[in-house]
Simulated assay, not measured.
Amino acid sequence: MTEKQPAVYILASKRNGTLYIGVTSNLIRRVWEHKNDLADGFTKKYQVHQLVWYELHETMDSAISREKAMKNWKRAWKISRIETVNPDWKDLYQSLL
């Protein structure tokens, strides 16, 4: 994975815990910011730091469209998406490095 690659991602506080969906052009840097509470707001307040799912995109426009769509999904759909590729809810951040 290159440093600059549009991506949509889901962070979780724990298995079946609080979820956060975001979009970025640099997934490694952005998840590191969340993990180190450098991103003020929701993820810092609720300790949502585990990268449990991500999807790479060709363009930022497509990533933003996907993020907006997924934010409107039912929670069950989000959990199903996570468990399809990450059934154990492992933190995927180290696999990016």
Rank of each mutant, 00 (worst) to 15 (best):
R81M: 13
I82G: 07
H34W: 06
I79A: 04
E58P: 01
T43Q: 03
P6L: 08
W77T: 15
P6G: 08
S62Y: 02
R66Q: 14
P87T: 03
V31G: 06
A12T: 10
A63N: 09
R66K: 15
W32S: 11
M70I: 12
K35C: 03
W89S: 11
S62Q: 13
D61C: 02
Q47Y: 03
D37P: 01
W73M: 12
N86K: 06
R15I: 02
A69N: 07
I10F: 12
L92D: 05
G17T: 00
T2M: 05
S13A: 13
D40F: 07
K14P: 00
D91K: 03
I82W: 06
Y9W: 04
I64C: 12
D40H: 04
I64K: 15
I82Y: 10
K4N: 14
D61N: 09
L27I: 14
K4G: 05
H57T: 04
T84N: 11
E33T: 01
D88T: 09
V23K: 05
V85N: 12
T2E: 12
I64W: 08
T84V: 11
A76Q: 15
W73H: 11
R66Y: 08
Y54P: 02
E67G: 10
D37E: 00
E58K: 10
W32A: 09
I10H: 04
D37C: 05
K78A: 15
K45F: 00
M1N: 08
P87M: 04
K71G: 05
K4W: 13
K78L: 15
E3F: 08
Y54H: 13
S80D: 15
N26P: 03
K68M: 13
K71C: 07
G22F: 03
D91E: 12
I79G: 05
N16D: 12
V8Q: 05
V23T: 12
K44F: 02
V8D: 10
K4P: 00
N16V: 06
L56R: 06
E67L: 09
S13M: 10
K78C: 13
L92C: 00
G22L: 07
L51V: 04
V85H: 14
E3N: 15
R81A: 09
K4A: 11
K35N: 10
W73K: 09
R66G: 06
V48P: 01
I64L: 14
R75D: 02
W77G: 09
I82F: 09
S25M: 09
L51A: 05
P87R: 01
E67P: 08
Q5T: 12
Q5A: 07
G22S: 10
T43M: 01
Y54M: 06
K14T: 08
I28D: 06
L56T: 10
T18H: 00
S65T: 13
N16S: 11
D40C: 00
E3T: 14
K90L: 12
N26L: 00
Q5E: 11
N16P: 01
T43F: 00
A69E: 15
K35E: 11
R30M: 03
N86L: 09
G17C: 01
G22W: 07
T2Y: 01
